[in-house]
Design a protein around this nucleic acid. Structure first.
Lengths: 240, 240
DNA sequence: ACCTTGCTGTGGTCAGACCACAGGACAGAA
DNA sequence: TTCTGTCCTGTGGTCTGACCACAGCAAGGT
């Protein structure tokens, strides 16, 4: 052997990855800003000396990252446009992996507690009147005789509204993603409740109201504590 | 007008989106698990009655989401395999959007504090001897006269080790993604420090050691508080 | 027992064609 | 003039069919 090591090149990149890099460079350099249109796929392919297929695969990657959006036809919405859709991208990724990775339920609950404690506290500190109304709205609908699926959707809406009210986009997105990923598993649990369903519904509804009250009262510590208690108690109520 | 509204169909999906959906369905249903191989692209195209190009664009989307990995040739690493690479995917998304300032820096810092407080607390409660060694290892290397880039990499390794030691996979993945996404921005800040660099390095190193000590001592509250203080103080030291 | 060789199946790439769509330009009708 | 329909153009979306590079494997020769 002429050398011992240090030779680990080069994993040559695939064409579409090079295209992705070029576009990201332009974005990071500020040459491409949100709202700008990329060259047409055929143009870009010609300029970068790759096939249109490679360009399109790159676009799919960027689209999945929430960086561009493609539209057909002509006019302002046509073509491939640089956009800022971080929440959508983040939510898609997290949601899938929560479903895919079988994270231990305890881990997911711990993560939810951490995130939603924070959200509830922030919401109590910052929530505007409109944000409060958004939080209250699902509560009213839940008061009726909602069935399990409706109840679950409204519960999701409640938690999302609290997260949004906190005002931290990143925390809200993570919260939303995890709650969305839990939507089906939780529905399954609701369906297995049997005769305990009315009792559970009443208990959860009461906890929601208390959380809303604490946020409306502007009491962060209380809101956070109630939210943590709510998540734990719903686990206790729903777990098999 | 015959109707006032309620007509908002239908945005018919693009072929590759349908392919993505089919694959995701299988994953959510548990039919496809991590490690399983998808049918070959040509097969899948035939089965779903779409072109191979559509299948490939779908694969790029799933790849960007960290859900599959493609390899050429034959053997166990060949073909398209379902995998779970959440931190990589999250990092890619966050890195770009942080650079584009689609997430406010204050929000990112707040999220980091929340996540790493939690990680540090968990680590203090759970860390095994090996995990503690993993945390200590970058600290020793940092003690020397590391340059800025090396220091930054070791700092990243330290925070990742703490996150891993917490034992909560979900929290760790999110923590890792955020810290990795901050890697370049932080390096830029380190490079702009000028003569303050030795002083900053000393301060951060001391904080790291204190955090490690608290974790080793099994004091969750203290570890969490120190970690929060560390993140805030490093912000103060590095921010322009 | 050990190489060499070629076969096979995989993703990666390409060229070229056609489709659906949305807007704009233009000619004709009111 | 104003409106209305028609055609044209450029965009992304889709498909076909071909070829390449690669990694393993099995058959064959040494």
């Amino acid at each position: 052997m002429t050398t011992t090591d240090g030779w680990q090149p080069v994993a040559r990149a695939r064409a579409y990855e090079l295209v992705v890099e070029r576009v990201e460079e332009q974005i990071l350099a500020g040459t491409l800003k949100v709202g700008d249109r990329l060259p047409a796929e055929r143009d870009l392919a010609a300029r970068l000396q790759v096939s249109r297929a490679a360009v399109r695969e790159a676009m799919r990657t960027l689209e999945a990252q929430g960086v561009v959006r493609s539209g057909v036809g002509s006019g302002p919405d046509a073509g491939t446009v640089v956009s800022a859709l971080p929440s959508e991208a983040l939510t898609r990724v997290l949601r899938l992996h929560v479903a895919l990775a079988n994270f231990a339920m305890a881990d997911v609950v711990a993560a939810r507690v951490m995130l939603e404690r924070s959200s509830a506290g922030l919401a109590a500190a910052h929530a505007s009147a409109e944000a409060l109304a958004e939080i209250a709205s699902p509560l009213e609908a839940m008061a009726g005789d909602a069935d399990r699926e409706t109840f679950n959707d409204l519960d999701t809406a409640f938690h999302i509204a609290v997260a949004e009210a906190g005002g931290n986009r990143l925390v809200a997105d993570m919260t939303i993603a995890i709650r969305e990923a839990m939507r089906l598993p939780i529905l399954r649990e609701l369906e297995q409740l049997g005769e305990r369903w009315p009792e559970v519904r009443a208990a959860l509804t009461a906890e929601h109201r208390a959380i809303h009250a604490a946020i409306a009262a502007g009491d962060p510590e209380r809101a956070a504590t109630l939210m943590e208690g709510h998540i734990h108690s719903s686990r206790r109520l729903l777990a098999p």
